[in-house]
Computed example of a mutant assay.
Amino acid sequence: MTDKPKTLFITGASTGIGAETARAAVKAGWNVGLFARSADKLNDLAAEFGDKALALPGDATSLDDQTGALEMLAEKFGGVDAVFANAGMGLSTSGTDEGQPDEWRKMIELNVLGVLWTTKAATPHLKKTGGHLLLTGSAAGRRHIKGSVYGASKWFVHGYGGNLAEEMREWGGRCTVIAPGMVDTPFFDEGKPDKLKPEDIAEAVMYALHANKRANVQEVFVMPTG
């Protein structure tokens, strides 16, 4: 008798790190729930995976959208074993003096509140499976960058991830912060061909997920050599 395939929910799944993590997970035998705002991109990606995937269009800044998506995913595949809170955004203008408050608000809603909503929606499912929560942090969340509001949002992710690891340990769960340096993704307006690729970060996610159950890989830093 073979073990039932595990199921991974990914926010920000339509492109970049999210999409490549979905590919790596399916290759490793996982089912995937693909969550993002772009229904067309999600449907195309889900078609690539066949019956191993479920497209779940929604907005990561909505707790209701994420709660409903996770319920649909659990119903389809019989539970949720891991959740990757990957959705995030940067800013067009850096620094505090030149920064745009409206843009800050949108970023905080996604980079901070969106992570909270993912965690809140996921916790009941992960408690049932003794599951694993992963958060996309950043090298910018571990060093001081002149006036960086984006970096500060990632400092939150790192701090919250560590706190979650302590909380989840009480019921057999695990929490990992995946912290990349610069990655060549649609996050940037111009390509970064000499930097990391989304596949590199997907490999880090799978490394943390596949660690022995007795081990919680709490942070993974992946930095470009170039």
Rank of each mutant, 00 (worst) to 15 (best):
K27H: 12
L110Y: 05
R105N: 14
G151V: 02
T61R: 15
A165S: 15
A28I: 04
D194E: 14
A152I: 07
A152Q: 10
G137F: 06
K52I: 01
A211Q: 15
G114H: 02
A204R: 05
E219S: 13
V220F: 10
A85E: 04
T119E: 11
V222C: 07
M206V: 10
K192C: 01
A74Y: 08
M107P: 06
N216I: 09
T185L: 05
Y207R: 14
D102P: 03
T15Q: 14
V149N: 06
F9V: 06
A152E: 10
K76S: 03
T123K: 12
T123M: 13
A85N: 15
L63C: 05
M223R: 12
L45N: 07
K41T: 00
W117N: 13
F221M: 14
K192N: 04
S38H: 13
H210E: 15
T7I: 06
L116H: 08
L34T: 01
K127I: 03
P5E: 08
L54F: 05
H210Q: 13
K41E: 08
Q218C: 09
G99Y: 09
V217M: 08
A39S: 15
K154Y: 03
M168A: 09
N43S: 12
E203K: 14
E75Q: 14
K154W: 00
W30N: 06
S14N: 03
G79A: 08
V80S: 06
T67N: 10
T11I: 07
E75Y: 03
A25P: 02
S148Y: 09
G173M: 03
N212G: 15
K192V: 05
A36I: 05
N212M: 12
A47S: 15
A55W: 06
K197N: 04
W155L: 01
G131I: 10
T176V: 08
D51K: 11
P198Q: 03
H158K: 12
F187T: 01
H144P: 01
Y150E: 02
A36S: 12
T93Q: 12
N212I: 06
L135C: 08
R105T: 14
E109D: 12
S62T: 05
S92N: 12
A39V: 05
G181S: 14
V115P: 07
D189W: 00
G141M: 08
S148V: 01
G181H: 09
I108H: 10
V222H: 07
H125L: 01
S14P: 04
F9M: 10
